[in-house]
Write a protein that binds this DNA or RNA. Structure first.
Length: 758
DNA sequence: ACTGCGCCAGTTTTT
DNA sequence: CTGGCGCAGT
């Protein structure tokens, strides 16, 4: 699918433009073109590793340095907070303090900022609450309940998805075309959407999709407001344009109609978020959407070796409907991409762990290695192997900090205090910890609230004056409401952090976890401490709540030399020397559900995911597939992924586990041993080579035992705590390896340094 | 008001 | 095999 390199896609670079702008000299020619093409719409097609972020940053700096605009006249949007933060820091490095005035942030954060100013125009109060997914589902549940729809048949989560898809397309309830009526609840989805929106409005709340949708409504209904922002934003920059959805596209188009100086950067080959509303079509249609658009291609890759780049390019060439890029690079060919078949998932984990140790012995940092899996569940086998061998690792992704149960509860307390009308927050914590305010009492509160059109707290306040609620519940409820009042009074004088600490202690919330003896209780208490500490950075609770709903992410990437384990999706945007890509089997990758759900488009997105995975690597790519995998409870045999066949043979070498002859990719090109490179041999040999066993040596044994005693662990029978597996008792000891029966996780072998005495 | 049992489902994830 | 959820029983 690749086209020949663009012979001439750019105006000649004017030498004069370089004077007084030293930062431009650090760029290659195409990058410089992308930076200097300031007028009119520009699409920068930036292949993986071609210096996309550098271009964006330099462009920003260039606009400022040449005095074309003030910081406050530049809008720069990203999709993630991490990207926004990085961009801000790097721009600040170039231009210093003037970075402060930029409109730089995620689509959602910028929309929220705009909406707070004009909330009344879309029927909200400026103090509106931003709901998270959890709240959305609870709200949807209430809507379904009120509409008498069986939640078994039509789950609330599915309704939220339907509504979200409409919002992604920029469709308010009134705009949803009849033809778009979804299957959901026999075509009642639209009606439910309307009710959901109505509920949101009475709660003075907006979900994430609303931030964009309301902004769109604001602009289309109030031309003078739109005109104001159009005048304001002389330059618009958009990162990761391939991830934008229709609503975001419409939003950008409205704003760009002012001056038209919009620059979108992206890579159609890295569009992997179609399943959550992103439209590859946006980037494919850019030239049509923005008249007179100029396209600049960044094709010189600074990251990967030629073999890796060629393998990735060959694979992605199987996709249709690409804009087409020809990535090239200079330098040593390096290792070919190694593809290996193994018997099962455990062997795969063993092989990967062995190579990690081998690389480490050669002086490679663990931090420079990553395992990128298709699905979160795949990390388990690697974790268990790493724990057994004592290889330090970190799993990136999973639950974000603010998504954790205990953090949500803590936030809900603050929400109730800051926003007495926040029914969802009230509902969440009214009986947490247990106060004996159960379903019956809640029903009563609901009834009154609905009948009078008042908030739950208000209704509760009235009900404690009557005897409509059982005495016990009435007492607790009354005490809780008094607490609320007291805390609200304290909020006037205390710092948010001190307030939160007080609230969590006095409400009994901290105590609930301290008294509970579940394996994860200590971790939750730690998180609560972290939560209180995080609040120290804020002046007001309101400020913190905005931050928590829009900005707060959990950067676990920090700290230490650890192997990185994550999904392919969360690997996007990162790079590592060595990348392991396990689980390349039909069904898992490409994932069956992606194919079932989206057919050919789904397959292409999976292929892009594979492309993203390979292009994360600087030096080494190790792809593997297992002939057998345990899925749920049963063993299923799998065939190698079609993507393995699609890799260009010249840049790949195959190795196969001895005695494993099944699978279509295995050994096909030249057999297991033919033409293996040094690394390939290492990969092949490592897994069969006996690991250097621990010397059975009295000194070593004594040494390990002494070390454990130092740590407070004596031996068999001791009760210990493990970060991941919880509490357990030591069954057996072999040097530094302990066999432990955990209360929850069963019997595991772990390295002693991973446990502490309980 | 809470506990326990049985049923179901079980890619990817940001805001 | 899990975990989460809803319902039924105490």
């Amino acid at each position: 699918m690749s086209e020949s390199p663009e012979p001439d896609n750019s105006a000649p670079v004017r030498a004069g433009a370089l004077s007084g702008t030293p930062y431009l000299q650090a760029l290659n020619e195409e990058q410089r073109v992308a930076v200097e093409a300031l007028d009119g719409p520009v699409l920068v097609l930036a292949g993986a590793g071609t210096g996309k972020t550098r271009v964006l940053i330099t462009r920003l700096a260039h606009i400022l340095a040449t005095g074309r605009a003030f910081p406050g006249q530049i809008l720069a949007v990203t999709f993630t907070n991490k990207a926004a933060r990085e961009m801000f820091e790097r721009v600040e490095g170039l231009v210093g303090a003037s970075a402060q005035g930029l409109w730089l942030g995620t689509f959602h954060a910028i929309c929220a900022r705009i909406l707070r100013r004009h909330a009344e125009l879309v029927g909200l109060k400026p103090s509106f609450t931003i709901l998270d997914t959890d709240d959305q589902i609870r709200l949807a549940k209430q809507v379904l309940e009120a509409a008498n729809i069986d939640e078994k048949k039509w789950p609330a989560r599915a309704l939220v998805t339907v509504i979200q898809r409409w919002k992604d397309k920029g469709l308010a309830p009134a705009k949803v075309p009849a033809s778009a009526a979804s299957e959901f609840a026999n075509g009642r989805a639209l009606e439910l959407y309307g009710q959901y929106q109505e509920r949101l409005r009475t709660l003075n709340a907006a979900d994430f999709g609303d931030l964009l949708l309301h902004s769109l409504t604001l602009f289309t209904r109030n031309p003078e407001v739109l005109a104001d922002y159009q005048r304001r934003f002389k330059y618009i920059l958009v990162d990761e344009y391939q991830d934008s959805n229709v609503a975001q596209y419409l939003w950008l188009r409205l704003l760009a109609q002012g001056g038209g100086n919009i620059c979108c950067v992206g890579d159609d080959d890295q569009s992997i978020y179609g399943w959550r509303g992103a439209e590859v079509g946006n980037i494919l249609r850019f030239e049509k959407d923005f008249a007179g658009a100029r396209i600049v291609r960044l094709e010189r890759n600074y990251r990967s070796t030629p073999h890796i780049l060629a393998a990735a390019s060959g694979l992605i060439a199987h996709n249709e409907g690409r804009l087409g890029k020809t990535l090239w690079t200079e330098g040593e060919d390096g290792d070919k991409v190694v593809v290996g078949g193994v018997w099962d998932g455990a062997e795969e984990a063993r092989m990967v762990a062995d190579e990690i140790e081998a690389l480490q012995r050669q002086g490679c940092r663990l931090d420079d290695m990553a395992i990128l899996v298709r699905a979160g569940a795949q990390t388990r086998e690697f974790e268990e192997r790493f724990i057994l061998l004592g290889i330090p690792y970190r799993v990136i992704g999973g639950l974000r900090f603010y998504e954790r149960h205990e953090i949500r509860d803590a936030v809900a307390y603050l929400r109730v205090l800051a926003q007495p009308d926040d029914d969802l927050a009230f509902e969440r914590i009214v009986n947490v910890p247990r106060r004996g305010i159960g379903k019956a009492s809640l029903q009563t509160i609901y009834r009154l609230a609905r009948a009078e059109g008042i908030a739950l707290t208000t209704a509760a306040g009235r009900l404690v004056e009557t005897d409509e609620i059982a005495p016990r519940a009435r007492g607790s409820l009354s005490r809780l409401l008094d607490d609320f009042d007291r805390w609200r009074a304290q909020a006037q004088t205390m710092t948010p952090s001190a307030l939160a600490k007080g609230v969590l202690d006095e409400s009994g919330y901290t105590g609930m976890w301290r008294n509970g003896k579940s394996a994860d209780a200590p971790g939750r208490l730690d998180n609560l401490k972290e939560f209180v500490a995080a609040l120290e950075d804020f002046e007001t609770v309101g400020e913190f709540l905005e931050h928590v709903s829009l900005v707060m992410d959990h950067d676990r990437a920090a700290g230490g030399d650890l192997v990185n384990v994550m999904t392919l999706h969360s690997g996007k945007g990162l790079e590592f020397d060595t990348v392991f890509l396990p689980g390349w089997e039909e069904g898992l990758f490409p994932h069956t559900r992606a194919l079932d759900q989206s057919g050919h488009a789904g397959l292409e997105e999976e292929r892009r995911l594979a492309y993203v995975g390979i292009t994360r690597a600087r030096k080494r790519v190790r792809i593997s597939f297992a002939a057998n995998r345990r899925l749920f409870n049963q063993w299923v045999s799998a065939i190698p992924s079609r993507f393995i066949d699609e890799l260009p043979p010249d840049h790949v070498e195959h190795m196969t586990s001895p005695g494993l002859y099944t699978g279509r990719g295995a050994g096909r090109q030249g057999g297991p041993d033919a033409g293996l490179s040094e690394m390939g041999m290492a990969f092949a040999n490592l897994r069969s080579r006996a690991r250097p066993g621990p010397a059975i040596d009295a000194d070593a044994r004594r040494f390990e035992a002494a070390k454990r005693r130092g740590a407070g662990i004596v031996g068999v029978g001791d009760r210990v705590f493990h970060q991941k597996f919880g509490y357990g008792r030591i069954l057996a000891v072999d040097l530094n390896k302990l066999e432990i029966i955990f209360e929850k996780a069963g019997i595991k072998k772990v390295i002693d340094s991973f446990v502490k005495p309980a």
